[in-house]
């Protein structure tokens, strides 16, 4: 089974990287771009077939290490 984890900066936390990318897109003529937020994408291979257990374990991984919930949100999908 595979877990796909997305970690994003909370809406009320400054994302200077996203702002810089937005400015660059504007400079390239993509004026329709509004807010840009940059996050992280992680792919985890899991040695289990138990979906319910995998879900609980990946949530724990996110809470403990993969995201800092003070500044970041996370969500994940299980594949396979």
């Amino acid at each position: 089974m595979k877990a796909i984890v997305y970690v994003t900066i909370k809406a009320n936390v400054l994302d200077p990287q996203g702002n810089a990318v937005r400015e660059a897109l504007h400079a390239l003529g993509f004026g329709e771009v509004g807010r840009v937020r940059i996050g992280k994408f992680m792919e985890l291979e899991l040695n289990t077939d138990d979906r319910a257990q995998a879900e609980a374990r990946v949530r724990e991984m996110c809470e403990k290490l993969l995201a800092n919930t003070v500044i970041e949100d996370y969500r994940f999908e299980l594949e396979g």
């Binding site: 936390v13 400054l14 200077p16 990287q17 810089a20 800092n68 003070v70 500044i71």
Partner: peptide
């Protein structure tokens, strides 16, 4: 938390 400097 400590995050990226505003100026990058």
């Amino acid at each position: 938390a400590l995050i990226r400097n505003r100026t990058l």
